[in-house]
Structures are given as structure tokens and as C-alpha cells.
Design a binder for these strands. Structure first.
Lengths: 226, 226
DNA sequence: TGAGCAGGTGACAGATCTGTCACCTGCTCA
DNA sequence: TGAGCAGGTGACAGATCTGTCACCTGCTCA
């Protein structure tokens, strides 16, 4: 099921017809408010989101942040030309791609396919992870090293989960902030993340060296299993 | 791989030969100390544990508790006749069955098969659970109701996980204590569990009624999805 | 090579969590 | 029907966590 968030009725109609013709079901929302409400009710069945940047009661980024805190469903931003700067930023905040209006439907469909292909090798549902000598069992909410439990606070544990679900990938500070804090990290001090990274490192690091790498100017990355 | 914890060398030899003949690999341990060490190193590959009750440096229950905090691998206790009272208690602490020595190998093998069959329908690796109107995503370590995050403390969250992994099953207070506290719950006040049950209920319960049921004199049970 | 800045560090105040207590409620059985 | 007890409740002290601060370190570029 595809969620389209778009206040231009003509465009909405066009997209809807095109996507339905391709065999997809469609959900509509015309505002930030409506998008959040529809998303929360249907989250489980939505497998793609098309997201207008400018909405009558806010921006697509707000919707994107809301969704990204809950799911990794693909999101494509639809933007007017002069939104382009915003759109690029939006990618950092969790979008997978963006299209500048007006665009050819065929191109949109092609990009959707590309993104689907890219995310197709469904991450297997691992529930036990190894980070250095630490073993994390998310079904038990337990972290241990050499059989000894490592106690993590709630925020530390969730920070670790964010890294595990995106292992080996560079995560920007903004992305991590928005995963961890409900307000999208807008209202927490940037240094707070730095401090939690440090705390997590202190608990996880062993002789095998630093597990969470700093990518200067970019963000952090959890080392792939060595 | 089967872990045998037994200090009687003759019995150990017998079991080992019999199990190897049936195509199983075997790990040995002759004491509590050794059992814990072997278990911690091989936890991932052990799929059955035979556990003598009386060991030179302690009891099988200690080993059982250690393992149960980490895994639901099947455990059969091997007990001398006059241990029987303990053995029954041991089942409460997480054992799946017990055999009174001396026993027929054939009977042991039959019981092992029975337990394997019982646990065969591998619980699928769900990572998203619903409890009443609450949605728990263990890959994100998040609990929410109607899109609004419910904040759980570390102990509350792990208590919830214990229930989720044993949904619909009656959990005895002792079992829960040993899942949650590293000392097997021996050194925490019994009322502490009652209090955490209450706190978790306060956060999870909604109009659809109580999710964690009390089974008086027995323990607690998390309601199956209605 | 040193200015500027991204990220690291140690310490802190206030918030929350943890485990216990004393006491309450209400089930169950004689 | 009421004694006895399993489990529930509200409040609490001390421990831990949370987020911020002021300042430090060390990379990167002109």
C-alpha cells in the first residue's frame, strides 16, 4: 500500500490513477496532520510513501521524521523547483530520493522500482548480534560480554539498536537524534548525542578496539562484524 | 550439540557413547564451574542440556538458572532418588523434565525426543508485538500506543520481553525473578516483582482491560492477542 | 603552523528508576 | 464467616540516568 501525501488535487489524482493501474493500493493525505493520522493507523500495511514537501499546515520533513522514528519504509519527496535546497536536506533526514515537480510519471515509477530493488534483500530478522566481544539479544533486551551482563540505560540501549539496525552504514548525527528523541532531536543539545556515544563506547569497547567509528564531519558508523 | 553436566564418570561415558551413536555431538562438564564456562563459550551451538543435580561444587539448579537467564534450550535434570523433591522444584526453576537415576538410556532418549517435538514448532522470529493497543518493536526498543510513545524503564521493558517470549504461558514468580535478576532472583524481595508487575500494568493497560493476568497461587500470564 | 571547529571529556543538578517497606485488599478454605 | 495468606498499593531513600555545561583535544585546512 502506497501513502501519498500531497495537497495538489490534480497531482494526487494523477498519481493515484497511475499507481492503481500498476496494481498498487493507495492511501491519501492532504496535510501533515492527516498524514500522521493515516500513517499511525495503517503503518503496518504501508510499503512506500510519496511525500510533498510543502503542505498547507507544515512541511513534508515533519512527516518524514515521524515515519522514520517508526519505520524504514521507503520515502520519496516531491518538491517544487525552488524547494531543491530543502529537498537535499530532507534526504539527510531520512528520505530515500526526491523528484522535482513537474516530473514524468514514468521516471517516478522507475525510481520507486530502483529503491524497492535496493531494499529488496530484506534484512533477515536477526535477533542476536555480536559487537566486538559483546553479544546483544534483542529478544531478551540483554547485552553481555563473556557471559557477564553489561547494563545499559534506556537511551544507551536504544542508541545501540539504532546502530545495529544500520550496521556498517554511516549515520548522520541528525538521523540518530531523530531516531532517539521524539521531537526529532530538534530540542536536544547536539552535545547530548556526543555524550551518549561516549557512554556507549565506554561500555562496549574492549581490546578489539573502538566499535563505533567517528566519521569526522559526517557522523558515526558501527563497525561490521570483524 | 548436547551439553552433559555430570560428575559420575561412568554415567558420563555411557551417555556420551549413546548420544554420539545417535549422531549427536557432545560437550562435557563435571562441575558447576566448568558447566558455566563451557556454556558461555558454546551457548550458540548447544541445543540440549543434561544436568546432574548434585555436583561437587554446587547444584544443577545453579547451572539451570544461569542457562535460563540466557536461553530456552531444553534441560533435563538427572537426579538420584532421594533428590526427587529438589528435582520437582528444579522444574519450576526452568528444567523441562527430570530422570531419576538409575534410568534406562532408551527412556532418556525418548524423553529428549518428546521435548524436542514439543518445542519443534519454532517460534517465528517476530520483532513486532501487539499487547492490547500497545505496539512493541523490539528492533527499536520502542513501545507505543496509538502512535504515542510509552516510556518503560529498563526493568519494566525486560519484564515485558519475558512475557512476550512466553505469551499465553503461565510464568511462575520464581521463573520471572530468575529471568530478570542476575542472581536468579534469590536476593531480591518477592514483592519487588509484584511492584514491577503493577508498574508495567499501569503503563500498558487500556480500555481493553488487564493484559497481564494474575493466576493466584501460580504466577502471571500475558493475554494472547485477542 | 596555527585558527577554527568537530567531536571528546568530566562534572553536575534535577529527574527518574530501583527495590523495599508497611499496610491494604480480596480470594479461598475450613 | 472469618483466619490466613497471595498479591496489590502508595510512599520512600538511595542509586542511576538524563541532558547540559564549560572546557579539552586533535583534525583539517588556508
Amino acid at each position: 500500500m502506497i501513502l501519498i501525501v500531497e495537497d495538489d488535487r490534480m497531482l494526487m489524482m494523477g498519481l493515484q490513477v497511475a499507481l492503481k493501474t500498476k496494481g498498487s493500493q493507495v492511501l491519501q493525505a492532504g496535510s501533515v496532520r492527516e498524514a500522521l493520522s493515516v500513517y499511525d493507523q495503517q503503518a503496518g500495511s504501508i510499503d512506500f510513501v510519496l511525500l510533498d514537501m510543502r503542505l498547507p499546515d507544515g512541511t513534508g520533513m515533519e512527516v518524514c521524521r515521524h515515519i522514520r522514528r517508526r519505520s524504514s519504509v521507503p520515502i520519496i519527496f516531491l518538491t517544487a523547483c525552488d524547494d531543491e535546497k530543502n529537498a537535499v536536506e530532507a534526504l539527510g533526514s531520512g528520505g530515500d530520493d526526491y523528484m522535482t515537480k513537474p516530473f514524468h510519471l514514468r521516471e517516478l515509477l522507475a525510481r520507486m522500482d530502483a529503491i524497492r530493488r535496493r531494499s529488496a534483500p530484506q534484512r533477515e530478522k536477526k535477533t542476536i548480534f555480536r559487537v566486538g566481544e559483546n553479544v546483544i539479544d534483542i529478544r531478551k533486551g540483554r547485552v553481555e560480554r563473556q557471559g557477564k551482563e553489561i547494563l545499559l540505560s534506556a537511551v544507551e540501549y536504544r542508541l545501540l539498536l539504532v546502530f545495529l539496525q544500520n550496521r556498517g552504514q554511516l549515520l548522520r548525527r541528525n538521523q540518530i537524534l531523530s531516531f532517539l528523541w521524539d521531537d526529532g532531536g530538534e530540542f536536544v543539545n547536539d552535545n547530548t548525542l556526543t555524550v551518549y556515544i561516549r557512554r556507549l563506547r565506554q561500555k562496549l569497547d574492549d581490546e578489539s578496539g573502538r566499535q563505533i567509528e567517528t566519521v569526522r564531519g559526517m557522523g558515526y558508523r558501527l563497525r561490521e562484524d570483524s
